[in-house]
């Protein structure tokens, strides 16, 4: 293959990536791969790709002896090799352009959720089954249990505060409380406003923006929210050891890109859930209660109303942190 052919095909590939990026950004499908806060980098990538592709097509350094003399980086080496090798290399670049353009609409669902595992289930597996026959590990598990109980009582202390009128709490106490929050940044202190909101309201509605926060707070101290109503939307999936009337309603939370997705959701149990297949999008409203599930205190919903909904345009939720508030 002559260098001209290489330059031509590379130009086409670069323009292909430009089109892929443009289509993803235009349709918004880019957010199925990348968290929105990374977007500035992709505008940069789009422009650079377009410029590189255009330049590449009109590139004429084949006879540019001046360039070669000055630059002994021997990029020409890149252009030598067998036809098969190049067919393979260029196919590597071309395939993602097509799978990206044609299958960008795919949304991770129950199959990936099962691979990644529902957090609670993983914890259960450690603390009960697998380590049951190992004395040392049992001690570890007990220690974890103990720590958790201690921290649970701690949390109960602090969650008791909102019941008292804020003004009645002496200044020193409140300051002390704040100091402690800074030392140990638990979900409670990562989402302080959200926590106050959740404690104040009788009906917590989970939205794209508060999704990760609400689940984190519920995981940390489910008891504080018992008796409140909660509305959650999400897709359904079951772990292999779930019974038919159990499922998780949740969504994938993404930090940077889909490769770091984690599942955020609630475990539900109800006879009516038997008819619901995996990967169904539901809106569920119910009253928060806790269940003791293999020694693990989980938040769940009882007296639920189930409503089928369409998959939202933006099926993932994103973990957004305001670094400036540190």
């Amino acid at each position: 293959m002559s260098k001209t052919t290489h330059l031509f095909i590379r130009g086409v590939i670069l323009l292909g990536f430009t089109m892929l990026l443009f289509q993803l950004i235009w349709t918004g499908d880019i957010n199925r791969f990348i968290a929105p806060r990374m977007m500035p980098y992709f505008y940069f990538a789009l422009i650079v790709m377009g410029v590189l592709g255009t330049i590449q097509l009109f590139r004429n350094d084949i006879d540019d002896h001046d360039h070669h003399e000055s630059c002994h980086c021997a990029h020409d080496h890149d252009y030598q090799g067998s036809k098969k090798k190049f067919a393979f290399i260029y196919a590597l670049f071309i395939i993602p352009i097509f799978t990206g353009l044609l299958f960008s609409g795919h949304v991770l669902g129950s199959s990936q959720a099962q691979t990644m595992g529902f957090k609670h289930e993983l914890r259960l597996a450690t603390e009960t089954g697998i380590y049951a026959n190992n004395e040392e590990s049992q001690q570890v598990a007990q220690q974890i249990e103990q720590d958790r109980e201690e921290s649970a009582t701690d949390n109960n202390d602090s969650s008791g505060i909102p019941e008292i009128d804020e003004d009645e709490v002496p200044e020193e106490y409140r300051e002390h409380d704040e100091e402690r929050n800074i030392e140990v940044l638990t979900p409670e202190s990562m989402y302080p406003e959200l926590k106050e909101e959740m404690l104040a309201t009788d009906h917590i509605v989970m939205t794209e923006d508060n999704y990760v926060g609400v689940i984190s707070l519920l995981e940390e101290n489910p008891d504080a929210y018992v008796g409140k109503e909660l509305t959650i939307e999400g897709f359904t999936f079951r772990e292999s050891d779930f019974s038919n009337d159990q499922l998780v309603v949740g969504r994938f939370g993404i930090t940077c890109c889909t490769a770091d997705a984690g599942i955020f959701g609630l475990l539900l149990e109800d006879d009516r859930l038997q008819e619901i297949r995996d990967d169904t999008w539901l809106r569920v409203t119910g009253t928060i209660e806790t269940i003791e599930y293999n020694n693990w205190q989980l938040a769940t919903l009882k007296d639920i109303e189930i409503e089928r909904i369409d998959q939202p345009d933006d099926p993932y939720v994103y973990e957004q942190f305001d670094y400036s508030e540190l």
């Binding site: 199925r32 799978t99 960008s104």
Partner: peptide, 30 residues
């Protein structure tokens, strides 16, 4: 095509995660 062809979910999951790793790296590689 993803509706018309009956591609297994796992394969599409693979494609999505593959593209997300690659796309995520592009601006930083550039």
């Amino acid at each position: 095509l993803d509706d018309r062809l009956n591609i297994p979910n796992r394969v599409l999951d693979f494609n999505t995660i593959f593209l997300s790793i690659f796309l995520e790296a592009i601006p930083f590689v550039l």
